[in-house]
């Protein structure tokens, strides 16, 4: 039994079958990559996992509990965090405040009237946030406006915000999209470091094969809404079905 179990999930948008009969099991403490050409249903599947979409049929369970019908904040409270394709951060707040918010959310739950506490005096929270910023090498930017940072830094900050909650499952939606090679490599190193520090399960959607093959321990290839193959990276490389799916439908996005 994996930490996340997807069973017979189907989703239709009008006449379009986005997902048909998807079965997926993500084992605890592994990095599991979901790849596939455009329109394969990767993002739809991710949106089902975080509660943004409700599938027409099938079940999704996390640690034995169903996630279907729960709101995004409830799913986060179960221990699932998500990094978006375009970084979703609190742009008008400082870097430090951005990291403090998830700390408080983890401690206090979905809502608490802590109107007479002082943010700066919650020592435990501040120390936790600072330690996280040191980990992602952003401590010197703690006072900066989040919106004024580079895209790479925003991504780094978003990851810090997810990781400070110590999620059991981290979902990454194209974490290196639009990044320069150096930034991409930094992100890979960061994720490897996180993985080595404490047990965590990650599910990555990625187009960049360099990232996929540096990180993934297991790969599922999706095409036209169904899983095509699932195997270890070595066996995915050069798999005839995979080659066909990519070369047959797109213009060599996997060529990297």
């Amino acid at each position: 039994m994996g930490i996340l179990e997807v069973k017979n999930v189907s989703k239709r948008f009008g006449g379009l079958k986005a997902l048909s009969d998807v079965n997926l099991s993500i084992a605890e403490n592994t990095v599991h990559a979901l790849i596939g050409p455009n329109g394969a249903g990767k993002s739809t599947l991710l949106n089902v996992l975080v509660g943004k979409l409700i599938p027409d049929t099938g079940s999704v369970t996390f640690e034995g509990q169903s996630v279907l019908g729960r709101k995004p904040h409830e799913i986060n409270q179960m221990g699932i965090s998500r990094v978006f394709q375009t970084p979703e951060i609190f742009g008008e707040l400082t870097v430090m405040e951005n990291v403090l918010i998830p700390c408080f959310a983890k401690r206090d739950g979905a809502f608490r009237m802590h109107a007479l506490e002082s943010t700066g005096r919650e020592k435990e929270m501040v120390e936790k946030a600072e330690a996280m910023l040191i980990d992602v090498k952003m401590i010197d930017k703690r006072g900066m406006h989040a919106a004024s940072m580079s895209r790479g830094d925003k991504r780094r900050l978003e990851m810090a915000m997810c990781l400070v909650q110590e999620p059991k499952l981290l979902l990454l939606d194209e974490p290196t999209a639009g990044m320069a090679r150096a930034d991409t490599n930094n992100t890979i190193d960061l994720l490897k470091e996180i993985k080595s520090k404490r047990p965590i399960t990650m599910a990555i959607i990625e187009h960049d094969m360099h990232v996929v093959f540096s990180l993934a321990e297991r790969i599922t290839v999706l095409a036209q809404g169904t899983p095509l193959v699932e195997d270890i990276p070595e066996n995915i490389k050069g798999h005839p079905k995979v080659m066909e799916a990519y070369l047959g439908t797109t213009h060599g996005e996997a060529a990297e």
Binding site: N76, E88, G91, E92, I101, A105, R112, M113, E117
Partner: peptide
């Protein structure tokens, strides 16, 4: 207060807010 921080977070990004629990 942390409560005020949450209120400012609402103004900035409600999507991130809900995905932060």
């Amino acid at each position: 207060s942390p409560f005020g921080l949450m209120l400012r977070a609402i103004k900035t990004n409600q999507t991130r807010m809900s995905y932060t629990g």
